[in-house]
């Protein structure tokens, strides 16, 4: 197939119309009356909300801003600014008390303290994968970094138990947000609109029954670079467009690239497209001015993440093959 660097360029207006039609159709078919969406202050939720407003109108779109203790304060500021720009209602719910009640922070801190016993309230933490997969081959091994708030940083490689303990605790943040979104949705007979893009969906960069727990995913067919193109076209506020993509889950700032993707989005999306479409390694390397080794490395990473996250994209496994409507 013909593969080139401009292959992900889209007709933004045509695509926006198509997605708006999709949202309208889904709301009607589910017999709902609107959409509720979590506004994170990032580009994915801002764009998805823009589509909801375009499809359903500003009266039928509600934004929830759901900060917690570790959230960057600008996330709330940008989310509210975006909501104001769209003219929609936006409610703020601090989910920290719910997380404290569940023990999210305590469980996470206990896991960290098994590695760094001194870790406490004034500390910040983040997890990262080795940087730049294309420059240097390495496995996806997480490093935990802590900082005492006075610039004294320490880091250590995470073993399986530590990693799973920290992830299990922090994933409750996204699951708590899902709970709030469905509370609003059911109360108002709205559906919950998801915000996962294709770059995330294919590689499993979402939380099962967290941000993955939604009724529709209007941007799940769009690569992150296309999300940015459409967001600019639809007038998402510049502060969000210029902000580096981040999960905003850890007290120490970490970008999506540092935490998970390991390749800058422009390059990542093209390579992901090439992998998905079965573009031969030599063709992808030639078009992108990369070595075949670099492309092979990226493809191996995609295949591994796709395989590991496959269960996250499926309905729960059961012996029930299909549900048929009864005869009339």
């Amino acid at each position: 197939m013909d593969f080139h660097k401009e292959i992900l360029e889209i007709n933004c207006e045509k695509e926006a119309r198509r997605i708006s039609r999709f949202i309208r159709k889904q709301v009607l078919s589910m017999r709902k009356e609107g959409a509720v969406i979590g506004l994170s202050g990032g580009v994915d939720s801002a764009l998805s909300a823009e589509f909801c407003v375009r499809a359903l109108g500003k009266e039928k779109t509600i934004g929830l801003v759901l900060p917690e203790t570790d959230s960057n304060p600008v996330s709330e500021e940008f989310a509210l600014k975006q909501a104001k720009k769209m003219g929609i209602r936006a409610d703020i719910i601090d989910i920290s008390p719910t997380l404290e009640g569940f023990g999210t922070y305590k469980k996470r801190d206990e896991a960290i303290q098994t590695i760094f016993p001194e870790y406490g309230p004034r500390y910040r933490m983040k997890m990262t994968l080795p940087p730049d997969l294309l420059e240097r081959d390495s496995f996806n091994i997480y490093t935990l970094m802590i900082d005492d708030g006075q610039g004294n940083a320490k880091s250590a490689r995470l073993n399986k138990e530590n990693l799973w303990n920290i992830i299990a605790a922090t994933d409750t943040k996204q699951r708590t947000r899902m709970m709030h979104l469905y509370y609003y949705a059911e109360k108002m007979n709205f559906l919950v609109c998801g915000t996962t893009n294709k770059t995330e969906l294919v590689q499993g960069f979402f939380v099962k029954y967290g941000d993955g727990g939604v009724d529709i995913e209007p941007i799940a067919h769009l690569y992150k670079t296309q999300v940015y193109d459409l967001a600019e076209h639809l007038g998402v506020i510049p502060q969000i467009l210029q902000r580096p993509a981040s999960p905003d889950t850890y007290s120490f700032h970490v970008s999506d690239e540092e935490l998970f993707f390991r390749i800058p989005f422009r390059t990542l999306d093209l390579l992901l497209y090439a992998w998905e479409k079965g573009v031969p390694i030599e063709n992808a390397a030639g078009a992108m001015e990369l070595t075949e080794d670099q492309v092979k490395r990226a493809f191996r990473d995609f295949a591994g993440k796709f395989r590991t996250s496959e269960h996250m994209r499926k309905l729960p496994a059961s012996l029930q093959k299909s549900i048929r409507r009864g005869c009339r």
Partner: peptide
Amino acid sequence: MEKGIIDSTGVLE
């Protein structure tokens, strides 16, 4: 990795 024998968690194990 390519044969799907170990994933990133498997590497840790």
